[in-house]
């Protein structure tokens, strides 16, 4: 029997990077997967990458209307499901003095508020014994210049994981957070469109990391699937996948 046979998973922010890697691993393991994304390019490339049977849905993770529509779509597609991976997120770099209200709101709307309502609307469809995984960031535990709003929004998300874990416990749904350090995904080029800047930042992160390398999307995906299906006595917890960055 395949490892994830008969499992059904919904990945919010699953058209690129770690979300996409998780979707692929699930499909390879025999699961059914529905992923969301927003950009047309991302949706189209995911369609190709997940041709094996993934459902790709256009849905803005910040929009409550879209989240409602997504819940209806998931219900139609799967009825009930086993894993909700809330992974859509992005960090805008801005030092305190340059952080506009728009940047601040964008960080909290995408990384915290959208995730909150995604769990609110989708949790009723999760099977007993199922699981929720939220993607936070090392920035929620380590102060990083330029990432005050992003780090705080991810800290809010980390806090949601604890309370959701308590509230969903009666339905035997576990809720945990995966905390990536620097991971080699397309996010870097989105955050730093100038190639030389992206390369410079990558080099810096590599140097600062105890493992002297960036992690891969697959390394995060494996941790997500561990939390989702193997860590049956773990709930409300946080699993850092960061090469030791936040730990040493």
């Amino acid at each position: 029997m395949e490892r994830y046979e008969a499992k059904r998973a919904v990945i919010i922010g699953g058209t690129s990077g770690m979300g996409l890697a998780t979707a692929k691993m699930l499909l390879d393991g025999g699961a059914r997967v529905l992923v969301t994304g927003r950009s047309q390019a991302g949706l189209e490339s995911a369609q190709k990458e997940l041709a094996k049977g993934g459902v790709v849905v256009s849905s803005d993770a910040r929009s409550l209307t879209d989240i409602d529509a997504l819940a209806a779509r998931v219900k139609a597609e799967f009825g009930a499901f086993d894993l909700l991976f809330v992974n859509a997120g992005f960090g805008l770099f801005a030092p305190l003095e340059n952080t506009t209200e728009a940047i601040y709101d964008e960080m909290f709307n995408l990384n915290a508020k959208g995730a909150f309502f995604a769990v609110q609307k989708l949790a009723p469809l999760i099977n007993r014994g199922g699981s929720v995984v939220l993607t936070t960031s090392v920035a929620n535990v380590k102060g990083m210049p330029g990432l005050a709003a992003y780090g705080a929004a991810k800290a809010a998300l980390r806090s949601f994981a604890r309370v959701f874990a308590a509230e969903l416990l009666p339905r035997e749904i576990r809720v945990n957070a995966v905390t990536p350090g620097p991971i080699d995904t397309p996010i870097l080029n989105k955050a730093f469109p100038a190639k030389d800047v992206a390369a410079q930042v990558t080099e810096q992160m590599r140097g600062l990391n105890p493992m002297k390398r960036l992690g891969t999307s697959e390394e995060v995906a494996k941790a997500v699937l561990f939390l989702a299906f193997d860590a049956t006595f773990t709930t409300g917890a946080e699993l850092p996948v960061d090469g030791g960055w936040s730990q040493l």
Binding site: P210, A237, P240
Partner: peptide
């Protein structure tokens, strides 16, 4: 999980398996 290469980017961490006691 920690023994296998599935945790290859996990370092210095403490994985809690406590049924939630310590977290809420």
């Amino acid at each position: 999980f920690l023994a296998s290469d599935e945790s290859s980017y996990v370092l210095g961490a403490e994985l809690v398996a406590d049924g939630g006691v310590s977290r809420f």
